[in-house]
Design a protein around this nucleic acid. Structure first.
Lengths: 213, 213
DNA sequence: TGACAAGATGAACGGTGTTCGGTAAATTAC
DNA sequence: GTAATTTACCGAACACCGTTCATCTTGTCA
């Protein structure tokens, strides 16, 4: 049955066409400024057609973010294989996370700085499940990196889970404020240099985890 | 001229009536779920009337957030006067910041986790100026608290400004993730206890600033 | 060739922020 | 006391938005 295959191939093609157009507009303008009508008109289809491929606007952008975050996971797993010094591996991983956020501001903000209720209208769709899975695996990289440091005796902490989550909170804080407050051309707030902030942040995190000698 | 005064008093009254209604709805439902029509109907005025008192939706909620954040500043300044141990003062202040965010989730998220372009459509209005001023003074509390710790020899760091900003980023990270990711009924992510996370976070921050002995 | 199914859509629904011309009342001037 | 003017307000509209659904076209199969 070659016909059915071609059909489903064509369906997949339009699906990715929608995703591509959405992605472009999303990167340019951010979630709330991209309308389904804009996406539809860019690919020369009716807005209603999008609903044959995605449940709603939220799920479309969820799967968009999911796709992007796979890159971060891959990058972190690459680091894990290539960098043998555990502390350096941790530090580079944290730096990658921040860099990833800076490179994909809209995806980052939509995923971590937006109340779910504002864009996700039903739980447990297939896309969300997958995205969630990627997120867990990405977080696992951090967990493993910390545990390796502890085993090597380079860092010291009691509760791996709590420490992993706290560390995530810290680098999220750096990323989030850099995206949302830094480089607002706010002439009144005396932001110091961006790279310096990042380095300072990473130093402080690692110092907070170093064994008390 | 008593008439003019009464008039401006009445005008101020309606202004605060709008703000009150907006505040209630805002706390209940969050920025994007509160429409000017809802506010208007709650106070039994036309939506158009709101535009006689506020430039647009963004400015209305900006001044709302500003009002709320004054409370945090007051709390921090109170701490500064009453708590003599500088490190304890710093720690309590950081804790207050997080607690404030948890108590006013919508205000916090709108102020720090929302791209300005999504709700603020023109710079430098009177309300924004005032809010900005409050923000700067609040940040100054953190700066002073850190400096006092350094002078007392309890903490050690090079650059006060960078350290203040980094510290803010950390507590913002804690607050932001607690508000936006924690207690999503995400059965898959193994969040540890909230209080434990906060304590762990504060410990890590202070350890990251302790002098190397 | 006719029946059927899948894909795409036009038009509509109920909502949004925002603008503007007009109105009615309160104030001022005469 | 009446006319002119300022003020506060609002109905209606504009241009959007996400979403739904009956309808239509078109490719497929018997």
């Amino acid at each position: 049955m070659g016909i059915a295959e071609r059909r489903s191939r064509e369906k997949e093609l339009l699906r990715t066409k929608i995703l591509d157009a959405a992605s472009q507009l999303f990167v340019e303008e951010g979630f709330p400024n991209v309308s389904l009508r804009k996406i539809a008109s860019r690919i020369e289809y009716s807005p209603a057609t999008i609903y044959l491929y995605f449940k709603d606007k939220g799920h479309l952008f969820s799967s968009l973010c999911g796709e992007t975050f796979v890159q971060l996971k891959d990058e972190l797993e690459r680091l894990e294989r290539e960098e043998t010094d555990p502390v350096l591996c941790l530090r580079k991983g944290l730096r990658s996370y921040i860099g990833f956020g800076l490179q994909h501001p809209n995806q980052y903000v939509l995923t971590f700085d937006t109340p779910r209720s504002h864009y996700e209208f039903e739980e447990s769709s297939k896309e969300c499940q997958e995205t969630n899975q990627v997120a867990l695996e990405t977080f696992d990289c951090l967990r493993r990196a910390l545990e390796r440091c502890r085993i090597a005796g380079a860092l010291e902490f009691e509760d791996l889970e709590a420490t992993s989550q706290t560390t995530w909170m810290f680098i999220h804080g750096i990323t989030s404020l850099l995206l949302l407050q830094f480089s607002q051309n706010d002439p009144h707030f005396p932001w110091v240099d961006k790279e310096k902030l990042i380095e300072n942040g990473l130093d402080m995190i690692l110092r907070g985890l170093r064994p008390c000698r």
